[in-house]
Nucleic acid binder design. Structure first.
Lengths: 236, 236
DNA sequence: CGACAAATTTAGCGGAGGCTAAATTTGTTT
DNA sequence: AAACAAATTTAGCCTCCGCTAAATTTGTCG
């Protein structure tokens, strides 16, 4: 199994993300996500197709093959383990862990991956609340409502904050809207108006974009979200 | 200050090492150390010269400029901090830390460097006993005798083991000849014969190559070799 | 159906950093 | 001084992965 370049790994990761949202990835979406020109993306897709990591038919987008998905999950595992490690062991500010992990993930050996996972107690979630793929390539599907679609007056635990936009992430962090915090939606202004939320005894008026990136779980349903149980290596 | 490529960083580090040993670095020595062809080294040297990181005159070798030396020490600091962190915080086997640090050092931000240094208590030596350059670019010259030139019958503390050859390093590790261990030279066979040493109550016959890579200090002179005192930012 | 806009691909280029083969320089040896 | 070997550099090529500009395809609208 040949070692992939950092660029290839970035593409696989991006394709995986787009696939999650839309079923398949278009050249343009990929180019936007990776901040390259569409022509560059086309080029790389042809290369990944030759390596049998994606199924690519010209003009109609890409999908990961099983091999490609396995690789993507491995890289995502690296990334999320690193984020958690940087946050937890080294106390790096939450809004900086993503960028740092983005560079380190490509330089991580399997050996070090295992040591980090062990040091963290084989964790199931990264500091943004995203699930960490298991070593054997499984990723629990999480589906939680966001603050824009949740009933008022009830307490919710924040389980995940989308890390797609670093500015937004930083803003939410300043407000205390981070995983593990408890939040209540007080009220919603009509016609796209702000959403009033209470967190840590402070009240904020949140815009819709922000609210849609904060995912929650009713306090009543809260279970343990810590280390993963011994995986029983279930297969698909 | 523009970011350098990983290849450039590797060259600067290598030039620094050769310069320590020989005053300046030749194209060939550089090529051998970096496992590239001499022609490739020439190419890179011209590039580094354009960036004013080295003084390069064709056919007569290179030397680092002050700017180049500063960069080299920064990278060496990354490398040695990483080695120590991997060993101490994550318990990675000693013989694996070098290779891992070799890849990670290029992906480390200043921010993370500082966090790691702090987590380790601003250490002065890496796990091989090599001194870690300070943040402001100072590297204490260490000069210790090796096992091939030290009197017999006396106890010595191993302070450094050369990490230039991974095989050798691993061999020495297996014998227990690692920094902090105490060793006694029992006797030397004449005419290039083996050197009998005692470590951890076991006796070994060491070849000269091995002995020349183990550096020691008389037990009588042993002081603290732990964290660095608050640096008073001395300048040259 | 035909035309047009948007998305995509193709063609060709550029820089980084390897390589080989062919000069060229250096230093030593006679 | 001349000749030669070793070290070095030059020239030219290759892969990776960006880019721009120019086709080409797709899908939608009249």
């Amino acid at each position: 199994m040949r070692r992939l370049t950092a660029a290839m790994e970035d593409y696989l990761k991006a394709i995986y993300k787009l696939q999650q949202q839309a079923g398949s990835a278009t050249t343009q979406a990929l180019a936007r996500l990776l901040k390259v020109k569409p022509a560059s993306a086309t080029n790389m897709l042809k290369k990944l197709a030759r390596l049998k990591l994606v199924r690519y038919s010209a003009y109609r987008g890409v999908q990961l093959t099983p091999a490609g998905e396995k690789m993507a999950l491995e890289i995502i595992r690296h990334h999320r383990l690193l984020e958690l490690y940087l946050r937890q062991a080294l106390k790096m500010p939450l809004h900086k862990v993503h960028e740092e992990a983005e560079r380190l993930e490509h330089a991580l050996s399997e050996e070090l991956e295992d040591l980090i996972a062990a040091a963290l107690g084989n964790p199931a979630y990264d500091p943004h609340g995203d699930p960490i793929p298991t070593k054997d390539g499984h990723l629990p599907k999480v589906h939680h409502p966001h603050l824009g679609e949740v009933p008022q007056g009830q307490k919710f635990l924040i389980v995940r904050v989308s890390d797609s936009n670093p500015e937004l992430l930083r803003y939410l962090e300043e407000l205390g809207l981070v995983p593990q915090a408890v939040v209540t939606v007080l009220s919603r202004e009509p016609f796209g108006g702000p959403i009033w939320v209470k967190v840590n005894d402070r009240t904020y008026a949140l815009g819709h974009e922000a609210a849609h990136h904060v995912f929650v779980q009713p306090m009543s349903e809260v279970r343990q979200r810590g280390a993963r149980r011994k995986t029983r290596s279930s297969r698909r």
